[in-house]
Amino acid sequence: MNRRKAPLLAALALLLAGSALLISKHHPAPEAAPTSSAPKADARTAAAPQAGPGAPAADPDSPMAELGRGPLRQPKDLASYLRERYGARIRDPHTQMRMLEDLMRYFQKLNPTGWEADLLALLKQAFPELYDELVQRLHQRLDYEKWVKEHQAELTQKPAAERRAALWDERNRLFGKDVAEKIWAGELRNQAVADSLASIDALPNATVGDRMAKYKESLAKTYGADTPAYLQAHQQDLMNRFLDLGSVQKELGAMAPRQRSESLRSIREEMGLDDAALQRWDELDKVRDTRWEVGSQYMSEREALAQQYSGPELEARLTELRARYFADEAQTIAEEEQSGFFRFTRPRQWGRN
């Protein structure tokens, strides 16, 4: 490949590897709406994608920092790159939207006022047979963002369920129900899991094992044949969502230490962690348990000192106490307490802190 072409393609490859900005994929806040950051111009061409939940932060030292410093070059190579990256699934609305949003960000860096014409020209080169459909999809996307911006204040005031319903009503109107559900399929699955967790949390007289069994059933129902791969890719998040249930924390807190350790290990096994990971978690649990025991002892002694002393003498004794309990971390603890934060008065979240 020509040496001049390689940096530009590498930069575009990194940018296109980013997450879709309009399509919510991460828990929480599946109803989060995009906002616009483009220069004010026509209502349609001004709408610019902005980083949403889970979007990668810009790195000024990465090759992406070169974007926007010069005119677009080698459009034929870019068209080939798009066909190679997206061609196999380009008829899928979700894939179309991911590509369009990544390209919007790319072209707006290069040409903030004329980005849409540049983007459309590239689409015509890359996918001439789908050009009209992709143009329609882009305009639907821009119209949706315009609507969200115009109704942002109203949406913010609505309860979460009503806000989701309003967003889905507009998505269905603009995109059509079938297309909208494909574009926001990840959000629908996230919401299905969240609804299932709420039901699992409310189960009366269920054990942690019972709730985990129901959880895995709900994941299998939601993700179907993709369940094993999804579990593998999202083990930590899925495990945390289960451990965050009040009913699970309540039962874990009522267990004897050995039983609780066994229960936590079982939860992690059910989430597909291998033996090495299970061993690391066991060791981390022991470190956390020791730290909370030390913290409890420290807080008891701290309270006793606060009842006996005040002013500079209390501060001197607390400094000595923190140094005895926390050594190198003593100054951090002191600064936290000066700001009003006492880490060992937080609720213990078993398996989480």
Rank of each mutant, 00 (worst) to 15 (best):
D210N: 14
G52Q: 10
L305D: 03
A166M: 10
G253V: 04
K76T: 15
L174M: 06
L100V: 03
F342A: 15
P128L: 03
W147R: 11
R98K: 13
A32G: 04
E313N: 07
L167H: 06
V294I: 14
K286F: 00
A13L: 11
D237G: 11
G246I: 11
R91G: 12
V135D: 09
Q191P: 11
R322V: 08
E133W: 08
A51T: 01
V148Y: 10
R288W: 07
Y86G: 01
A13D: 13
A180S: 03
G176D: 06
R73V: 12
L264T: 02
P56V: 02
G87H: 08
Y106R: 14
L243D: 01
G295R: 05
R73E: 14
E329I: 02
E269L: 05
A160G: 13
Q349G: 14
I23T: 05
A334M: 02
L130S: 11
S62F: 05
E335W: 00
A233V: 07
L273M: 10
M255R: 06
L167S: 01
E101K: 05
T227G: 12
P71R: 02
A51F: 01
A256L: 05
R258N: 10
S247D: 09
I267E: 03
K250F: 08
R288G: 11
G70C: 05
D92L: 07
R91H: 14
E315T: 15
Q232H: 12
N172Q: 15
H94R: 15
L103F: 06
L305R: 08
L321D: 03
A206I: 06
S37P: 07
S261L: 09
E329H: 00
P112T: 04
A166K: 12
R98C: 11
G114L: 10
A192L: 00
Y81P: 04
L197G: 04
Q331E: 15
F342T: 12
A79E: 01
Q338Y: 11
A213Y: 08
E145P: 02
S199Y: 09
A47E: 03
A304E: 13
E116L: 12
A202H: 06
S296Q: 15
L197H: 08
A323T: 09
T332G: 10
A11P: 05
L12K: 07
Y106F: 15
A334I: 13
E337D: 06
E303A: 14
I183C: 10
T35Q: 13
M99D: 03
A316M: 10
A306D: 09
K25L: 13
F127C: 00
S266C: 08
T319V: 09
A117P: 04
K177E: 15
Q232P: 06
E181W: 01
V287S: 14
E293L: 10
K25F: 08
S261I: 03
Y81H: 02
V248W: 07
S36D: 11
G87Q: 08
D274M: 04
P204I: 05
T319Y: 09
E320P: 07
A10P: 03
I333H: 07
I90Y: 06
D282I: 04
P112S: 00
R352P: 01
N111G: 11
L252H: 07
R137P: 09
P204D: 02
W115R: 05
Y298V: 12
L219P: 02
E154L: 12
S266E: 14
T222F: 10
R211L: 03
L110F: 07
G246P: 06
A65Y: 11
A256Y: 00
P56F: 03
R348N: 12
E329F: 02
N2M: 00
N353G: 00
